[in-house]
Every structure is written in C-alpha cells, then in structure tokens.
Amino acid sequence: MSTTIKLLTLAFVTVLSVMFTTPTNYTTDGYKIGDIAEDFSLKNIDGKKVSLSNYKDAKGFIITFTCNTCPYAVMYEDRIVALDKKYAPKGYPVIAIMPNNTSVVPGDNLQAMKQRAAEKGFTFPYLIDENQDVYPKFGATKTPHVFVLKKTGIGNIVKYIGAIDDNYKNAKAVTTKYVENAVDALINGNEVPEKETKAIGCTIKN
C-alpha cells in the first residue's frame, strides 16, 4: 500500500471515528462557569410567567432542572425544598424547571406538576420549559441538574454547575453538600470551593 493511500485511509477512519463518537445531543453545550445566564420567562404551575428579573431583591438563584417521574429527582425533592427554605431568606431562592417533553413523558405534564408540588409542599416556583428552549441554553442534561447563579451588575453569573450533593440514595449519608457549599461561599464573599460536579439523574427527554 502506498504512503498516499495509507494517509487517505487513516484520514477516512479518523473522520468516521469523530462522526460516531462526538455527542450529537446539543445539551452537552451550554453555560460554563463565569458565563452570564440569560433571563427567561416560563409558565409556573399557577399559570403565571416567572422570570429572574421578577426577583428584585435576590442575590442569586439556585436553578434546578427536575421533574415528577425521574426516581433520582424524586429522591432529591425534600432536599430541594430544604434548600429553598434555608437560602431563599438569604437571597438565593430555588427556581425549579421541568424540562421534559410531556408528549414523551405524560407524567410530567402541567397538571401532574401541580399535583406533585401540592403533595410535596413546594415553596418555590415549578416552571415548565414547554418549548424546551431554556434547558439547552443552560446545558442541563439530567434531572436533577443544578446551576447556582450570582446576581451582579452585569447579569446573573454562573458560579456552580452539577449535583446537589454526593449521595442521591440517602440524604443522611451525604458527606459533601455541593450546592450548600457553593451558596454559603457566595454569601460570605468567597470563591466557590468546588465549581463543577457530575449531575447524577435521568436523561432529559426531548
């Protein structure tokens, strides 16, 4: 085999490798640490639209992509409620967003969201990303997937991305509370100690 043919063969194999190993799901992109998150306007379970700009006194936000039907999300519901109760009074409210396509997952439709919020006593907005155009901007891929934002004069800056803590199975066995550590650091004017972790959960359905 000539050198030219070898090179062409190698190039062809390389192209095929890239084609079949590069993720095609656009949600692998999205905000990175330090990016400014765009505002959004999504329908809450009460029918009203909610935007980050509605929160005039907020110092930041705990944006949580979650849903009714994912077992991982269900295991974290009480912890999400606890985060809002602890940090909303300190200026960092939880805003939950349901990103799934409800045609694919009917159990995540708006009526089911209302029912689940009532059953669990959600103290925060539970928004539906009906057009599925918000979660790709964030780069959310799982439920749950958390983005901690800090409000500044230039916008809401992404300061943490990832999991809520290090044990989805058992809240009592958690050793590192990633979101709490991030928000505590921001409240105290410090750097977030661990800025990114791997979100563990169900894949967002589109």
Rank of each mutant, 00 (worst) to 15 (best):
M1F: 13
M1P: 13
S2D: 14
I5P: 06
L7G: 04
L7P: 02
L8K: 15
T9C: 13
T9N: 11
L10P: 02
V13F: 14
L16G: 11
L16I: 15
S17E: 02
V18R: 15
F20T: 11
F20S: 10
T24Q: 15
N25H: 09
N25C: 06
T27K: 14
T27Y: 11
D29L: 14
K32D: 11
I33K: 04
A37H: 05
F40A: 06
S41F: 09
L42A: 10
I45P: 00
I45A: 03
V50I: 15
L52S: 07
L52W: 05
N54M: 14
K56G: 03
D57Y: 04
D57M: 02
D57G: 01
D57Q: 10
K59M: 07
I63R: 09
C67S: 13
C70F: 02
Y72K: 04
A73T: 00
Y76D: 02
Y76L: 06
D78P: 04
D78S: 14
R79W: 00
I80K: 09
L83C: 10
P89I: 11
G91N: 08
Y92R: 07
P93C: 06
M98R: 06
P99I: 00
N101A: 09
T102Q: 05
V104M: 14
A112L: 04
R116N: 02
A118R: 08
G121N: 08
G121F: 09
L127V: 04
D133H: 07
P136A: 12
P136C: 13
F138K: 08
P144G: 06
V146A: 07
L149M: 06
K150D: 00
T152L: 10
T152S: 14
G153E: 11
G155C: 09
V158P: 01
I161M: 14
I161V: 12
I161P: 06
G162L: 04
D166Y: 00
Y168Q: 10
K169R: 15
N170V: 07
A171Q: 03
T176H: 14
K177S: 13
K177H: 15
V179S: 06
L186K: 00
L186C: 06
N190L: 14
P193H: 01
E194T: 13
K198Q: 13
I200E: 13
I200Y: 08
G201Y: 02
C202R: 01
C202W: 02
T203F: 15
I204N: 05
K205C: 09
N206W: 03
